[in-house]
Write a protein that binds this DNA or RNA. Structure first.
Lengths: 208, 208
DNA sequence: ATCAGGGCTGAACCGAGGTTCATTTCTTGA
DNA sequence: TCAAGAAATGAACCTCGGTTCAGCCCTGAT
């Protein structure tokens, strides 16, 4: 045996992999999926086209990993907020605010990960993320209804409504005030939160 | 001059055009934009590929016309309901119900027209439709706020939220109860309407 | 220093799908 | 019925983007 991967070699491999992944993610963050052509990704990572295929078996694989990585982080953060111990209404507001703030920091990426269709292979991963996100809200709603602090409303439908509402208002193509600065963003998040909160509590907790 | 288009000839032309347009619309309604390949459209219309280009200068043109045609009809209907004379809360509910009922009758088409991205040339037409739809709701909200029957809330943001909410819950990929029959659909529409209404009225008109 | 063998390169390949155009078919006025 | 020209045809063409692979380069054990 004359060639053996040493630890140093291993790390070089991993670094290159990470660099490609980061390049791809950044491209998606800038121009959505259409911008993440393999040639582009390779160029941005400072690597030849073929090299990408040394680390992923197809473009779909690479994209799926982007979705999975970023999604896991975002859902984790939202879930942590959503599952904290406060009363349901406050948790709901906090979860929405958390997601909204983060989404606004990277509108294009958020849109790509939640809304923009991709080829079927990646779609599965995307939908899973979306469903998990909705599920965070559904749990809060269910609990609020059980405790009697929220009026009755099908939690699955309401959760979908919440996701749809802030998705559209925040990062959708008709999002009011696209990139008009932090002041407008703050207003936007506040309004969206109030909208969703009111829809869920039905005025039962107008103190918020 | 030896050939002149007669009225009969003119009508034949128009009929063929209409047949192609209908074929394309049906394909979109069945499988979204990806299904509307020019070859497919031609085949479905019983026409050769090249014939399509005798009536539209490009595929994008054809798609834009589909969007424009269907959209104009749908927005017209919603607007008629939204602008009727009843009190704002009822008009809002009626508008949402109207749109939702119609969208459910053709989920795939509705999704394609409102949410599914297309190439940039068609996008402009799509966004215009979307914006008009949102505007219907915005007008109701604005009036309700002015009359003091709705609590204050940025009408543009709230309108986007409403569109997003019912879009997601009705036809989005996480729509609960996809195609589970008319009973489930009725429930869905009812829940969505209640969600949006409550968000807008803030419990000020809990009689609805 | 040497060389075995894995990693990298990037030009070529390939399929998909929109568009073109030489040819054929059909319509109309004479 | 016939000629002129519009309309239809559909196979070939072109572009775009994902994928491949033969050859080069670099790593690391000797």
């Amino acid at each position: 045996m004359v060639y053996q991967r040493t630890e140093r070699g291993e790390r070089r491999l991993a670094d290159k992999r990470a660099r490609i992944l980061r390049a791809a993610r950044d491209l998606v963050a800038e121009g959505g999926w259409p911008a993440a052509q393999v040639d582009n990704v390779a160029a941005r990572a400072g690597v030849a086209t073929g090299t990408v295929y040394r680390h992923w078996s197809s473009k779909a694989d690479l994209c799926a990993e982007i979705v999975a990585t970023v999604s896991a982080r975002e859902v984790g953060i939202v879930r942590a907020v959503a599952d904290a111990g406060e009363p349901p209404a406050e948790r709901l507001a906090a979860a929405i605010r958390t997601f909204a703030d983060r989404a606004l920091r990277g509108r294009r990426l958020a849109y790509a990960l939640i809304a923009e269709p991709v080829d079927p292979e990646v779609e599965a991963t995307r939908l899973q993320y979306r469903a998990e996100l909705a599920h965070c809200f559904e749990r809060i709603l269910r609990e609020g209804i059980m405790r009697g602090v929220f009026p009755r409303l099908d939690p699955a439908v309401a959760a979908a409504c919440i996701v749809g509402a802030f998705m559209e208002a925040l990062i959708g193509p008709l999002a009011p005030a696209r990139g008009t600065g932090p002041r407008a963003d703050r207003h936007l998040v506040e309004q969206i939160t109030r909208f969703c909160l009111r829809a869920s509590t039905g005025g039962m907790e107008e103190g918020a």
